[in-house]
């Protein structure tokens, strides 16, 4: 059962249905498209290194009067427990994504098996929460008064673990990528489900597991609302990076907006607009870093034909 075959050695060009000429035209069009799509992102980057005064005078502009790294400096010197927060974010993201996949993949596999008796029942069981939710208050009550998750890492990890949406995507992939016949054959050989799942299904499903992992990684990395709900202000040691950044943002906004309520000394206000953009860059930076690694996995999937043959 070699997963790779000689076919793999065909270059992408040979496999493609595009001729060289079509490829060139389509590529040019795509270049145009990504230029358009990335304009606002580019704007964010430029504003983050513009001087605040320039933004005040000219608004968000691709061509600011002057550049300044003040906003970045502010972030570096803000003295907010950033190191600890980065560690927390890594921990939460790693544990959450791994645990999530460990829970979602098996049930998706089970659901992808057409002769699984409880398939429809479990399917309905999974779809109901997608349609009905108890709402914020009851969720909060359950998590704090029944599960007692407040002020722990678990409060940031557990609630985001699974999603019916991803389970469906995994299930569809397993269904298409791994033909029923192959599993039947493996079962005739006496294979248990765990073996089949681990040895056959997971290896050929790397593209989908990695796609889901990618999205989960960023969901965890960028999530801050659970921290607001479940972490009290005297548990700052648990704050993830995004929550610290959101707080920073909010505190700049408050300083800027109701300075009149702060008695006495007029407080130094940091460059509000440009810091905001710096925080956005912080949020999308990990995507740029991780994506190339992820992208390697996306091409390894197209192999099952060999097994079948």
């Amino acid at each position: 059962m070699l997963p790779f075959s000689a076919e793999e050695e065909l270059t992408a060009e040979q496999k493609s249905a595009f001729s060289k000429k079509t490829n060139l035209i389509v590529s040019l069009l795509l270049v145009l498209l990504i230029l358009l799509v990335s304009l606002p992102v580019l704007l964010v980057l430029i504003v983050s290194v513009s001087s605040e005064q320039s933004v005040v005078n000219n608004g968000y502009s691709f061509f600011p009067d002057s550049f300044s790294l003040d906003a970045w400096r502010y972030l570096a010197h803000s003295g907010m427990y950033l190191a600890r927060a980065v560690f927390n974010s890594f921990l939460i993201t790693a544990v959450g994504t791994t645990l999530g996949l460990l829970i979602m993949c098996p049930i998706s596999y089970a659901l992808s098996r057409k002769n699984f008796r409880y398939r429809n029942g479990i399917m309905i069981f999974l779809i109901i929460p997608m349609l009905f939710s108890g709402g914020l208050v009851s969720t909060y009550m359950v998590n704090t008064q029944i599960l007692h998750l407040q002020n722990t890492y678990l409060a940031l990890i557990l609630p985001g673990l699974c999603s019916t949406w991803y389970i469906m995507i995994l299930r569809n992939y397993f269904q298409t990528a791994v033909p029923e016949a192959m599993i039947e054959a493996a079962m005739v050989d006496g294979g248990r489900q765990l073996q089949i799942f681990w040895r056959i299904v997971l290896p050929v499903s790397r593209p989908v597991t990695m796609t889901v992992a990618l999205f989960q990684i960023f969901a965890y990395w960028n999530s801050w609302y659970p921290s607001l709900l479940y972490l009290d202000s005297n548990h700052t040691e648990l704050f993830p990076l995004q929550y610290v950044l959101v707080n920073m943002q909010r505190s700049i906004d408050t300083l800027a907006n109701d300075a009149q309520y702060i008695s006495g000394m007029q407080v130094y206000t940091p460059p509000a607009v440009t810091v905001r953009m710096v925080l956005v860059v912080m949020a999308i930076l990990p995507i740029l870093i991780i994506f190339p690694f992820f992208h390697r996995f996306l091409k390894n999937g197209m192999t099952i034909g060999a097994v079948k043959g």
């Binding site: 933004v55 005040v56 300075a259 009149q260 008695s263 000394m265 007029q266 130094y268 509000a272």
Partner: peptide, 28 residues
């Protein structure tokens, strides 16, 4: 949302009390 960063604006509204100094820092 906020006009705070544009310090050149010459007229602003305020709500405070007699003797409040928070609006008046010339350095700021």
């Amino acid at each position: 949302d906020s006009t705070a960063s544009d310090r050149s604006i010459p007229v602003r509204f305020g709500v405070a009390w007699k003797g409040y100094l928070g609006y008046s820092d010339p350095d700021y």
